[in-house]
């Protein structure tokens, strides 16, 4: 479903419908109608179509996201205060908030 790659938008036609994206030296014609992008933006391209404008970090900062997660669980565990890392959590707890 999902092969897509981010590239730099280097050209947009007058109607804003077609553009050219540069993927490390590969220039591909793409359609832009599903996003609001301007020259210089990085766009995620799937099957020749832009599906999203992306912020290009070298790597998604997943470690920061996990730290956030651990922080939230540590707080829960300690009843509101920041718990210590290194706790073994019980496998299941009651309560669910989606």
């Amino acid at each position: 479903m999902c092969i897509a790659l981010p590239g730099k938008l280097i050209e947009v036609d007058e109607l804003g419908f077609f553009g050219t994206v540069d993927f490390q030296g590969n220039k591909v014609d793409v359609t832009l109608g599903a996003v609001d992008a301007k020259v210089g933006d990085y766009v995620l391209i799937h099957a020749g179509n832009a599906i999203e404008v992306v912020t290009l970090e070298e790597a998604e900062d997943v470690m920061a996201l996990l730290a956030e997660l651990e922080g939230a669980y540590a707080e829960d565990e300690a009843g509101g205060e920041n718990g210590e890392n290194g706790q073994v959590f019980p496998l299941f707890r009651g309560g669910e908030d989606a």
Binding site: P6, A59, E60, L65, L69, Y73, P90, L91, F92, D97
Partner: peptide, 30 residues
């Protein structure tokens, strides 16, 4: 990427261990 998939699997594990049923997003750039 390998990092994103691993982080997401780890995040699922931690959710299970904490009895959570939430939606977490490890692909915020897109």
């Amino acid at each position: 990427s390998a990092e994103q998939i691993l982080a997401a699997v780890y995040g699922l594990l931690r959710q299970v261990q904490n009895g959570k049923a939430e939606v977490h997003n490890y692909y915020r750039s897109a």
